[in-house]
């Protein structure tokens, strides 16, 4: 399932490019697919779809509220709709439209947002969506997916295209390291265990999965064995894998490139308090805004690199 020598020489690929390529492939097979963007098509890579199928691409200009509600209208008209812009503008700017028009009427609109998380980088706080998963997760009938590598991005977009429900799919600006090999099958109905341990459970998704796998290896080297659970589907949250792991380890760490408020960490806590009360430590950006900086430096500053996660977990394990 995992690529060989993952932690030694990882290859990387742009998830945005993968998104664009997948849209073009799907658009060729399914003439019902339409794509919208809000003046960021060259960045989100929906421009690839525009080039292939210009009559099925609609640029709504710098008007995200209009884009989301136009997407809703197209879905009312029977279309399978993908709408893209940066995560910051795709969620905060048009939260009302997403809630009251897309989700309330359970429309076939997939919001594929790029530039999720702190790793937007130099553009700084105004462009770093750290709360988007939280907003989206709180809306009834919304599905929220945060894939971790380009293989998974492709499968998630394919799943979205054949599932006529509102969906929020978050991908980062950064290139993602290739984690999954060709045998990996995205399962929308389960969290997936990628490493087996007895001492603690680490839950993550998105771009921090690679960091967590690296952290788990470092922990192994000092005799701490971690269960690593990948939860690309944050909502609906499928508790079984988490429950089984937490009942075994009794200690859970959640790592995400998102605020510790309302994201995967919160979903894990909500699930555990019901199914398997455990000690939980949430690693993510605190209750704060981001700032400008180089991507890796930001990851380091906000404690999301393998090294920082390792240090935090060692402290957490001492607390036991």
């Amino acid at each position: 399932m995992l690529v060989k020598n993952l932690l030694e020489k990882p290859e990387t690929k742009s998830p945005r490019k993968t998104y664009g390529e997948t849209l073009v492939e799907l658009g060729g097979k399914n003439l019902n697919i339409v794509v919208l963007d809000a003046d960021l098509s060259c960045s989100t890579q929906t421009a690839m779809f525009k080039k292939a199928y210009p009559e099925r691409f609609f640029n709504c200009g710098i008007a995200e509220q209009d884009m989301i509600t136009t997407a809703a209208g197209l879905a009312y008209g029977g279309k399978t709709v993908f709408a893209s812009t940066f995560a910051m503008f795709a969620t905060t700017r048009c939260l009302d439209q997403i809630r009251n028009t897309v989700c309330y009427s359970k429309l076939d609109v997939k919001i594929v947002a790029t530039h999720g998380g702190i790793t937007v980088g130099e553009d700084g706080a105004s462009h770093q969506a750290l709360e988007d998963v939280s907003y989206m997760r709180s809306i009834p009938d919304m599905r929220v997916i945060v894939p971790a590598d380009c293989n998974e991005v492709r499968q998630v977009i394919e799943y979205a295209a054949r599932t006529p429900l509102p969906m929020y799919i978050r991908i980062p600006r950064t290139n993602l390291k290739n984690i999954f090999d060709k045998d990996y099958k995205f399962n929308p109905n389960a969290g997936i265990k990628l490493r087996d341990g007895k001492d603690l459970t680490i839950v993550t998704n998105g771009e921090t999965l690679y960091e967590v796998l690296s952290t788990a290896q470092k922990l192994h080297e000092v005799g701490i064995e971690a269960d690593v659970l990948h939860y690309p589907v944050v909502k609906p949250f499928h508790h079984l894998a988490l429950k089984a792991s937490a009942q075994k380890t009794k200690k859970v760490v959640v790592v995400e490139n998102h605020s510790v408020i309302g994201g995967l960490g919160s979903a894990v806590c909500e699930s555990l308090c019901h199914y398997a009360p455990s000690k939980v430590y949430r690693i993510g950006t605190k209750d704060t805004f981001g700032q400008s900086g180089e991507q890796r430096q930001l990851m380091e500053f906000y404690g999301l690199t393998d090294k920082k996660i390792y240090e935090k977990i060692i402290k957490f394990m001492d607390v036991r």
Partner: peptide, 25 residues
């Protein structure tokens, strides 16, 4: 009842989307 409304300012964008879908079809 074609669509859900209530939060103002959204019906016209929905109408534009519907009109685009009808034109495509």
């Amino acid at each position: 009842i074609e669509v859900s409304t209530g939060s103002l300012g959204q019906g016209l964008s929905i109408g534009v989307g519907m009109a685009l879908a009808m034109r495509l079809d």
